[in-house]
C-alpha cells in the first residue's frame, strides 16, 4: 500500500493512474498520522518550491515527512523539496538531503524549461533494478539539483545534474516516472518492492 501525499500538484492523477496500471494499491492523504504510519510514501509535486513548502507547512507535514523511516519517493518538485534550499522563491526546504536547488541556466542557446525526453546514466541501486543504462525519461523543469554525494542517476543539459537521488530511505526523481513509458513504470515498480 502506497500513500501519496495530496500536496495539490497537477501530476497527482497521473501518479495514481500509473500505480493503478501496476496493480499497486494507493491512497491519497494529507493526514500526518496516516502518512507517518504508511508502508511507503510518494511525494509528488508540480508547481513552485515556495508554494509547495507553504502547502506542506499549512498541512503540518514538514516534521512528519522529515521523520519518515519507510521508503519515500519524491517526484519532480517532490524530489527537489528533499534538499535544503531552493533558489526558486529563495525558500528553505525539507533539508533531508544537503544541497541547493538552482535555476537552470544552460550556457548554449538551449530552451528553458528543460522539457522532453533525456537520457540518464544510472548507478547501482535497488530503485534502478532492470533500468538499462542511458534510458530515456520525461523531464519538465526549470530548476535543478546539482550532482552530489547522493546522486544515483545523472542527466545532462549542458551541465550534469541529479536526475535520481537516494539518501537512506529517501529517494527522488527529477523526471516523471509516471509519464516515462516502460522504464518509468519499472522505477515505480522497484519502489513498491524496495526493502530497506
Amino acid at each position: 500500500m502506497i500513500t501519496v501525499v495530496d500536496s495539490g500538484g497537477a501530476n497527482i492523477a497521473s501518479v495514481m493512474f500509473a500505480l493503478e496500471r501496476l496493480d499497486v494499491a494507493a491512497s491519497l492523504s494529507v493526514n500526518a498520522d496516516e502518512i507517518f504510519n504508511a508502508e511507503r510514501v510518494i511525494l509528488p509535486g508540480v508547481g513552485t518550491a515556495e508554494a509547495a513548502m507553504k502547502q506542506l507547512q499549512k498541512l503540518n507535514l514538514i516534521e512528519c515527512i522529515q521523520s519518515l523511516t519507510q521508503p519515500v519517493l519524491g517526484i519532480c518538485l517532490g524530489m527537489q523539496l528533499l534538499f535544503s534550499y531552493s533558489e526558486e522563491g529563495d525558500v528553505d526546504m525539507l533539508d533531508i538531503i544537503p544541497g541547493q536547488v538552482k535555476h537552470l541556466k544552460p550556457a548554449s542557446n538551449k530552451t528553458i524549461p528543460h522539457m522532453g525526453w533525456n537520457n540518464v546514466s544510472v548507478q547501482f541501486h535497488p530503485l534502478l533494478n532492470e533500468v538499462p543504462e542511458e534510458s530515456f525519461f520525461y523531464f519538465v523543469h526549470s530548476y535543478y539539483a546539482p550532482e552530489c554525494d547522493y546522486t544515483i542517476g545523472t542527466c545532462n543539459y549542458d551541465d550534469p545534474f541529479s536526475a535520481i537521488v537516494a539518501k537512506d530511505n529517501f529517494m527522488g526523481c527529477q523526471f516523471h516516472p509516471e509519464r516515462s513509458g516502460k522504464v518509468g513504470a519499472q522505477i515505480l515498480k522497484n519502489f513498491t518492492e524496495i526493502k530497506l
Binding site: 492523477a13 493512474f17 500509473a18 493503478e20 496500471r21 520525461y138 516523471h176 509516471e178 509519464r179 518509468g184
Partner: peptide, 11 residues
C-alpha cells in the same frame, strides 16, 4: 481525458 490518462504512460 481521464480515460486517456489511465491507459497511456507518456505525457
Amino acid at each position: 481525458v481521464r480515460k486517456v490518462a489511465q491507459i497511456i504512460d507518456i505525457p
